[in-house]
């Protein structure tokens, strides 16, 4: 319950107009800080929702695959340069962003993660590191401006941010093989 309140507070805070416009004024912060924070807000609210609607989650997401698929689709959608542009240009898309990231990505991610088992988790980690690598390549080397709203230098910055994100995921993924937690626990 406490977590759900923290999640709600974070959610409302992120939607406050000055916070949202500051976060959206810098491309990298828009994609790599605001959007993940919305997902985290959703993750924090997930246990409460699961407790409230246990039947819904067990019926529609009993093995975790539908949930993670939904998460995947939403995340990939928000990686499209055009989606970011539209969020800035159209109020309706901005509202969709505020709803989709916490409730269609954050909540299903938390519900699905443990249901997936280690193979499913690893598939997700590898996919995301590959996607991050591709996005890094796209944003760093694109000869043209991809977003109407952001300058090319911001685009390159975002590319490097994707590279570091991908590296973080890879380091986490690889250390699992070298550091066998069961040896320590």
């Amino acid at each position: 319950m406490k977590q759900a309140i923290y999640g709600l507070v974070l959610y409302v805070f992120l939607m406050l107009p000055p916070v949202a416009s500051l976060a959206e004024s810098i491309m990298t912060v828009h994609m790599h800080m605001q959007m993940p924070l919305f997902v985290i807000a959703g993750m924090l609210m997930a246990p409460y929702l699961k407790q409230r609607f246990p039947g819904f989650f067990s019926k529609w997401n009993h093995n975790g695959v539908p949930g993670i698929l939904l998460f995947f689709i939403i995340m990939v959608y928000w990686m499209l340069p055009r989606a970011m542009d539209e969020a800035l240009a159209y109020q309706s898309v901005e509202i969709f962003k505020f709803i989709s990231l916490p409730f269609l990505a954050g909540v299903p991610l938390r519900d699905s993660w443990n249901k997936l088992g280690s193979i499913g988790q690893n598939v997700i980690l590898v996919s995301f590191s590959i996607i991050s690598g591709l996005m890094a390549w796209l944003y760093i080397f694109s000869p043209t401006q991809l977003c109407n709203n952001y300058l090319k230098v911001e685009q390159i910055t975002l590319g490097w941010a994707f590279l570091f994100l991908g590296l973080s995921i890879i380091i986490y993924f690889v250390q699992q093989f070298f550091v066998d937690q069961s040896q320590y626990e």
Binding site: V29, T157, A161, F164, L167, S168
Partner: peptide, 11 residues
Amino acid sequence: AFAIISMGYVI
């Protein structure tokens, strides 16, 4: 830590 350092320094 690595991710937060990137958040702070990449831009």
